[in-house]
Design a protein around this nucleic acid. Structure first.
Lengths: 118, 118
DNA sequence: ATAACATATGAACAGTTGCTCATATGTTTG
DNA sequence: CAAACATATGAGCAACTGTTCATATGTTAT
C-alpha cells in the first residue's frame, strides 16, 4: 500500500511490486478450484437449498416442495452441491436424505450475508 | 436434525418441519443478492484480480500485465467487481488505481481456501 | 415378478457470461 | 488545439449454465 510509483508509462509496470505480487499468488490450480467453489454458491437455487439444509437434513422431494421446483431440477443441483463437497447424502430405503457436509458452508454464507448487509 | 419422520409418501412433506424451515428463510431479495455476490467470486479472472489487490492497489494496466490479459478484459471485470462493491478506485491523472473495498473480501476468499484445502 | 415410489441422469434448448475488437471518454503534455 | 496515453464501453460471438422432458436406476411392498 505504501510502495507505489510511476507504473504505467509506456505500458511498463513497476518491476519490484509486480514481482512481489507474483510471488504471493497461489498456484493456478488453487485459484481455479476456488473460483469453481464460489461458482457453486453463485446460484439462487443452490443457495436456497443450502439454506433449507441449515435446519435439518431433508429428502429430495421435501426440498423440491419447499422451493416449489421440480424434483429433477433439485436433483441436478444436489449433484453439483455434492461434487463440491458442500452436502452429503445417506439413503434410507427409497428416500435419500441430504445434509450439509460441514460448517464451512454456514461460515461462507454468513460472511456473504455480512457483506451484502454492508 | 433430531426431528424427522415419513415425509415423502404420496409426495407430502412433513408439515411442521417444512413450516419451521420456511420461517427461517431469508427473503427472496437477500437470497438473490447473496447468489449475485458469490457469482462475482465465481470466476478465475476476478479471483486473480482480487488476489493481486491483496498486496497493493494497482492500476488497470498493471493488473492486465500481471494476469497477462487485455486491458479491455480487465476493465470489464473491474467494473463487475466495483458494482459488487468488492473494489473501489481512485483516479490519479490518467491513471485509475483499484483497491479492495474492505476486509470481507479477504475473509470470504480465506474461508473458500479453507474449504478447498479440506 | 410386478407395480409403485423416490431419485438420478442424458439430451436439448434458452438464457447468461466473458472474451475480443473497435471505438469512445477522460487526462496530460506539447 | 492536437497527439498520446489510460481507461471505459458497446456489440458480437463462442462457451457455459440451469431448466424441462423423457427415461433410467434403485428400493420396497404385494
Amino acid at each position: 500500500m505504501e510502495v507505489r510509483a510511476e507504473y504505467c508509462e509506456e505500458h511498463h509496470v513497476h518491476k519490484d511490486l509486480v514481482d512481489s505480487v507474483k510471488l504471493d499468488m497461489p498456484d493456478e490450480e488453487s485459484l481455479y478450484d476456488l473460483a469453481e467453489l464460489f461458482k457453486v454458491f453463485g446460484d439462487t437455487t443452490r443457495i436456497r437449498i443450502l439454506y433449507v439444509l441449515f435446519e435439518s437434513e431433508l429428502c429430495v422431494c421435501d426440498i423440491a416442495e419447499l422451493l416449489n421446483m421440480s424434483q429433477s431440477a433439485i436433483s441436478h443441483q444436489l449433484r453439483v452441491l455434492k461434487q463440491a463437497k458442500l452436502v452429503r447424502s445417506r439413503r434410507e430405503g427409497k428416500t435419500v436424505f441430504y445434509f450439509l457436509a460441514d460448517d464451512h458452508v454456514r461460515t461462507i454464507i454468513g460472511q456473504g450475508m455480512d457483506h451484502i448487509n454492508e
